[in-house]
Amino acid sequence: MSDKQLPNKDDQNQDQSGSSSIVQKIQQLGQSSVPTAPDSNIHVLSVIGQIEGHVQLPPQNKTTKYEHLIPQIIAIEQNPKIEGVIVLLNTVGGDVEAGLALSEMLASLSKPTVSIVLGGGHSIGVPIATSANYSFIAPTATMTIHPVRLTGLVIGVPQTFEYIDKMQERVIQFVTEHSDIKEEKFKELMFDKGNLTRDIGTNVIGTDAVEYGLIDAIGGVKEAMEKLNDLIKENKDGEETMLQ
């Protein structure tokens, strides 16, 4: 009797350990298996949550650190297998200088870039969205355009104000250079009253952003991938004619 029972017990143990590892997987991943696929020639740069610059935010904040993104952009530029980049934006804004640094890096990338604004691309997310070769916005996504501001302790001298004013001028210049929006229109949206609760600025909705020329087109992942593949093809054709 006892001999017969032993293997049964082992079976049960194995069953339990097998099912518990699946349960563990489900708890950890929310799913039991994930598919695998070959290497991708398109890389994704996600800018999610707050853009973190010189000040480290507490860990409960969802942030995108620019010291993480900048080496990734360099790696993309260097890797010959990567042919294009998609920039996914769903950000509330953040550090102006960090955001501008990211925008400049993306704008100076030699490979084709396409950005998609999903949900929101507010504040300093606007120059990042326009820095790509072609930009898309989801119809329900919004972009808040407002003047630059600083929180915390500042030195109360006229130079501080001038510094912020110059910073704002750089943001305006970058956006107008990298999108079809006119400087007058962008400034009008930036300093408009009555659109935001007790604040200056405008919350531009997807379709309006395209109308103002801030974003190139309405679209999502499918449109962005199609456009990026077109740009990659153009880029390759251009290189070939150069070689001939």
Binding site: T36, D39, I42, V44, V85
Partner: peptide, 11 residues
């Protein structure tokens, strides 16, 4: 923290 979309499929 990766730009390769395939990495996100790695369990």
């Amino acid at each position: 923290l990766s730009t390769d979309p395939q990495d996100y499929l790695n369990s």
